[in-house]
């Protein structure tokens, strides 16, 4: 039961930086093991939403969160949440590949080592499995001692995915993971997202509408901090219920 990808329930979530509300009364459910694409114009609150799920939003001074977020049975919002436990459950991949200035191996082993795993055989198995899952193993086997920075941008991003997977999360947050990559690397990451589906609940923030259409099961459209529409991707893209969604999808809204 513990390994099953959890549902995510959001109830009346509002988030403010100082007195500026960037997310307003958002309620939604993401079914377990599915890929949810979050789309919307810049500044609509989608990155903030992502950072609420692993509470990385706490790093911003003066942030207020109201409402409830649950990942499986785990309460995300509150003063006494164990952030380490939460972040082991909910992994994240960032917009720009951000490998540590270490070797490929040490990058992937970083998370497990944080948890106190020192046994070298166990670490090697974990690293190999994570790299395989991130479809990077074939490209880096035998080069695990090389600096992560010697990899290409697309490989670095898959390394970051492997690094996140090595902690065995149940949820994977992806914040525009391909916006800094070329089309070929983008295609590889999209393929990878499709293979991760089922095992992980994936939330993918993207500016690339085709990408949302290609990889996601559900799509959520945000505007000015409000959740305008959430539904199966096919429906949202072919028969949107809201005019605003249609305008955004057809490029009539900026």
């Amino acid at each position: 039961m513990d390994n099953e990808a959890p549902h995510i329930n959001v109830t009346q979530l509002s988030v403010a930086y100082g007195d500026q509300w960037v997310l307003k009364d958002v309620s939604m459910t993401v079914p377990g093991g599915q890929v949810l694409a979050v789309i919307g114009p810049s500044g609509c609150g989608k990155s903030t939403l992502l950072r609420v799920f692993n509470r990385l939003v706490d790093r911003v001074a003066g942030v207020h969160i109201k409402g409830q977020v649950r990942v499986g049975d785990f309460e995300v919002i509150g003063d006494h949440v164990d952030l380490v436990e939460l972040r082991q459950k909910v992994g994240m991949v960032f917009q720009h590949p951000n490998p540590f200035p270490f070797s490929v191996f040490d990058n992937v082993a970083y998370g497990p080592r944080l948890q106190g795993i020192k046994n070298s055989t166990r670490l090697r198995i974990l690293v190999e499995n994570s790299l395989k899952q991130a479809s990077l193993w074939d490209e880096v086997r035998g080069k695990l001692r090389r600096p992560a920075s010697s990899l290409s941008g697309g490989q670095q991003q898959r390394l970051c995915i492997a690094r996140a997977l090595a902690v065995s999360p149940q949820v994977l947050l992806m914040d525009e993971p391909t916006s800094a990559l070329d089309p070929l690397s983008t295609a590889k990451i999209e393929e990878l997202v499709l293979t991760l589906k089922g095992q992980y609940t994936v939330i993918l923030v993207t500016h690339n509408l085709q990408q949302a259409a290609r990889v996601s099961d559900f799509t959520a459209f945000f505007r000015e901090g409000h959740l305008v529409e959430l539904g199966p991707t096919k429906e949202v893209f072919t028969t949107p219920r809201q005019l605003a969604t249609e305008e955004f999808l057809t490029g009539r809204y900026e």
């Binding site: 692993n54 990385l56 790093r59 380490v84 436990e85 972040r87 082991q88 992994g91 994240m92 960032f94 720009h96 951000n98 490998p99 540590f100 200035p101 970083y110 998370g111 080592r113 944080l114 948890q115 970051c160 690094r163 996140a164 902690v167």
Partner: peptide, 24 residues
């Protein structure tokens, strides 16, 4: 981005300092 990555992997502030920030 190094600090963010470490925190997102479940690193405490102290371990992030010790294992990523200071070595870098």
């Amino acid at each position: 981005s190094f600090r963010e990555a470490s925190l997102a992997l479940g690193g405490t502030k102290y371990l992030t300092l010790l294992r990523v920030v200071l070595p870098s």
